[in-house]
Simulated scan of single mutants.
Amino acid sequence: MPFLDLLRPVSDEELRQLSAKNPGWQLERWKDGRLIVSPIGRESGYLEALLLGQLYRWNQQRGLGLVFSSATGFKLPDGSLLSPDAAFVFRDHWLGLSPEEREAFPPLAPDVAFEIRSRSQTLEELRQKARAYLANGTRVVVLLDPYTHRVEVHRQGGAEEYPDPQRIPLDPELPGFTLDAQELFL
């Protein structure tokens, strides 16, 4: 993961401005202030769209919450600002925020976060992000590696690995949702 170490931590507003001035790059911030700088690739963008479609269809049937794309940065309790490739937040958690908090970087950990590995990332770097999400209250983190056709599901109790999976149920965190990995890994 490429890092940018600055002389001081970047504020939320500065991060917003940097993102606006640098389209094509995803900027995130670790709790220690280091910036994560990642190019947005076509392959991971395509997979993100497919994944968001699965989550959206599932949520349309159940109406349990909101689905977010990688354009949303979540300000985690430890001060990190991370943007999962896809995220889900239960409705009551979202409605617990003020309108101002919803408009800015929402100050909460998503209930479920999905990260798709790009060529510029290692699986260990994604695992580091999974640990950060879980430490801040995310219930489950799903890591997808399109290059090895592997999925890892991280929960507080540990991780499960699925080499070349077809379908992966994500109960109880997402009731009735089954990740169709076969659709994602063409």
Rank of each mutant, 00 (worst) to 15 (best):
L27S: 14
R62S: 14
L15W: 03
Q54D: 07
V153Y: 00
E13W: 00
S83N: 07
L143A: 09
S11Y: 01
H93T: 08
A87L: 04
P146N: 10
R29L: 14
P84V: 03
L81H: 12
V10Q: 06
S118C: 13
F177V: 09
G158M: 02
F185I: 04
G33Q: 10
G41Y: 08
Q17W: 10
N59Y: 05
A132D: 03
I40H: 07
E124A: 11
L97W: 01
I36V: 15
R139Y: 00
V67A: 08
A87D: 05
E43T: 12
N136L: 11
A87T: 09
L108K: 04
R139K: 14
G137E: 13
D171M: 05
S118P: 10
G176D: 13
P163Q: 04
P175R: 10
P106E: 06
S44I: 08
Q121C: 07
Q61N: 08
P110A: 08
F177S: 11
R127F: 03
P23W: 12
W94E: 07
F74W: 12
A71C: 10
H149S: 15
R91M: 09
E161I: 12
D32N: 15
G96M: 03
D5G: 09
N59R: 07
L6Q: 04
N22F: 09
L51G: 10
A135R: 15
V153C: 00
I116Q: 01
E173F: 14
S98A: 05
P172V: 11
F105M: 05
N59G: 08
P110D: 12
N59Q: 13
E125G: 15
F177Q: 10
V151L: 04
L47I: 14
R131P: 01
A104N: 05
V112S: 00
D85W: 06
L4D: 05
A130N: 01
E103W: 01
S120P: 09
L66A: 12
F3M: 15
D32L: 09
L7Y: 06
D171W: 06
S11K: 03
L82T: 01
D32T: 13
S70G: 15
F185K: 06
Q54A: 08
E28C: 12
V37D: 10
V112W: 00
D171L: 05
T178P: 06
P99H: 00
N22Y: 07
P2E: 13
Q61A: 15
V140W: 00
G79M: 02
Q166F: 04
Q121K: 14
E101C: 00
F88S: 02
E152L: 07
E183R: 10
V112L: 05
P2F: 11
E101L: 02
G63N: 14
